[in-house]
């Protein structure tokens, strides 16, 4: 059954396949650590995908494409920020609205871009490293966004663990009332966290439309945002575990695609369902066992903050 699959290419593809999920998940992780549950990741990702695609095609520069993607995701997340932080709307409902609106708006914006090829995002030239036998192909022949995704995990981990900013962010997420009493601007911190999450989701979306697929079609993210949300729970809100979760998911995606290509005797539809089913399975494992994952959740997650005095 595994006859036609080359493990080197499989691992290299796995790393590429997980990039959008890592970026979106690490952004959402920061948002949730600040105590905000933004379920609109799918919407922000697809806005990033379409904005990034348009920016890249219009300027002919893939780097500007990623900047555009991040800006598109952040702009959409700003709507969420205004609704939940200033107008105190229900976070679950607003997140869903963000996804529904994002799916509609993206297909509206992308209409005249269907069937176009975006400018190529090339591999980072790492010289002799890329020529290493196995490792060269797996680790050292990727584009810059792949390295950025890993770097962003490291950066978020470091900021959350050992900086003052991280401490304040976590305080706001654990108890907004206490943070407010200490004089921190709960609302401002949360808005910034939401926009960071939006930009990261947009970046992830842009990676899908500029590198992974690479073209624009409606609904291009096909649930990647929801999987990123699941990965955050899987990771129990810890950055490195999110990276692990994303690689696990990327591995399953790539493996099922390879199995399809290799003509395995499992019907294609069941293989395409595998990533979603395995995500559910992982969620179940993580959340059972005396609610271990739940214990790690930021205490104020999903609750709106209204300063009564």
């Amino acid at each position: 059954m595994f006859g036609g699959i080359d493990p080197t290419l499989l691992l290299a593809a796995l790393i590429v396949a997980s990039v959008p999920i890592i970026l979106a998940a690490i952004g959402e992780l920061v948002v949730e650590r600040a105590g905000v549950l933004n379920l609109g990741v799918e919407g922000m990702m697809i806005m990033g995908a379409v904005c990034g695609f348009i920016a890249a095609v219009e300027t002919g520069n893939p780097v500007l494409g990623f900047v555009g993607g991040a800006a598109g995701g952040a702009a959409l997340s700003l709507i969420f920020a205004v609704l939940t932080q200033f107008l105190l709307a229900n976070q679950v409902a607003t997140g869903l609205a963000l996804t529904l609106f994002g799916l509609g708006l993206s297909s509206l914006l992308g209409q005249s871009y269907v069937g176009i090829k975006p400018p190529l995002t090339g591999d980072v030239p790492l010289g002799p490293l890329a020529d290493l036998p196995f490792l060269g192909k797996v680790l050292f022949s990727h584009d810059w966004v792949v390295y950025l995704s890993v770097a962003s995990v490291a950066a978020v981990w470091w900021v959350l663990r050992s900086t003052r900013t991280g401490l304040i962010l976590r305080a706001v997420g654990e108890s907004h009332d206490a943070a407010h009493a200490l004089g921190y601007k709960v609302r401002r911190i949360r808005v910034l966290a939401i926009m960071f999450g939006g930009a990261m989701a947009g970046l992830g979306g842009a990676y899908i439309s500029l590198v992974r697929v690479p073209q624009w079609t409606d609904g291009i993210t096909s649930g990647a945002g929801w999987i990123a949300l699941a990965i955050v729970v899987f990771a129990s809100w810890r950055p490195w575990r999110a990276l692990l979760g994303a690689y696990l998911f990327g591995g399953i995606t790539v493996l099922q695609l390879n199995l399809q290509a290799a003509g395995a005797r499992i019907p294609v539809e069941y293989l395409s369902s595998a990533p979603y089913l395995i995500t559910i399975l992982v969620l179940v494992i993580m959340s059972s066992g005396k609610g271990k994952a739940a214990l790690n959740a930021p205490a104020s997650l999903g609750q709106n903050f209204h300063a009564s005095r």
């Binding site: 709507i79 205004v82 609704l83 107008l87 105190l88 709307a89 229900n90 409902a93 607003t94 869903l96 609205a97 529904l100 609106f101 994002g102 799916l103 509609g104 708006l105 993206s106 297909s107 509206l108 209409q111 409606d218 209204h306």
Partner: peptide, 26 residues
């Protein structure tokens, strides 16, 4: 008018609804 415009329109409706809901509780 593109079909997607209606989808965005429906999404917008939910945004405005959630926004003006503020007046109900505050």
């Amino acid at each position: 008018l593109p079909a997607a415009a209606i989808q965005a329109f429906q999404g917008m409706l939910l945004f405005f609804l959630l926004a003006v809901d503020l007046l109900t509780n505050y």
